[in-house]
Amino acid sequence: MYPASFKVFVPKSLDEALELLAKYGEEAKVLAGGHSLIPLMRLRLVKPKYVIYIGKIPGLSYIREEGGVIRIGAMTTHNEIEESQLLKEKNPLLSETASHIGDLQVRNMGTIGGSLAHADPAADYPAALTALEADVVLKSAKGERVLKVSDFIQGPYLTDLRPDELLVEVRVPVLSGAFGTSYKKLYFRAGDFAIVGVAALVELSPEGSFKRVRVALTGVGEKPVRARGVEEELEGKEASEEAIAKAAERAKEGLNPPSDIRASSEYRREMSVVLTRRALIEALRRARERLKSQ
């Protein structure tokens, strides 16, 4: 279909973009890869007066290790994240998650910044970024804020991003030790958003017990959910699939997933347990491999 009319700014620098946001932010939409915004504009569900396109600003697309974290520029595409050697080695959860987003073309254009700012409650990244306790960096002409992703996302399509701010960077930890990760996504048709998505991170102690466990889910609430009950249940315990199976039952604690034409809330609750178990078992298997090779 055909989007409504708008006026576009194409800033050539970050400062210029932030200046524009300070002036027009209330009535403007930031356009990055376009794969969240343009579909809405085409159906005229969103009709911004101004569009600020940040694709011509140099230096917003990067993946680099710095100060013990991996910094990812907001304009970095899902495909770049999926294929990044650095991430595959030091934070494979994010690249695995990226490979589940949309389809090849969407991953070529869609960006991590755009996806996060859009905050679709069934998007894939938020589960991984919540499990990873990742940060986002927000910039405005006035300064910079660094927030946990779990605080940044406030609800469905709702974030703490202020009208004059731009999401410029995502920071994820460099994983080390005997860790293993997994992202499991249940979808009914390929390329869709998740019915339930579960990101899991397991770190084993040298003796093979659960040193650190992180589990987060997407698609089951207004925002990504940390399965703290599961984490508590496992941390410190001897690692085993049986322990996981038991702990995974707690993934549904406090969950109130949405019902829609695809599935009911109750189905999603039940599947949260199944996918949590499957993600943790795979993460454990990978952690054990790493432990063995270390």
Partner: peptide, 8 residues
């Protein structure tokens, strides 16, 4: 026969 409908 979607997964949900079978489950239900």
């Amino acid at each position: 026969l979607t997964p949900y409908r079978i489950w239900k």
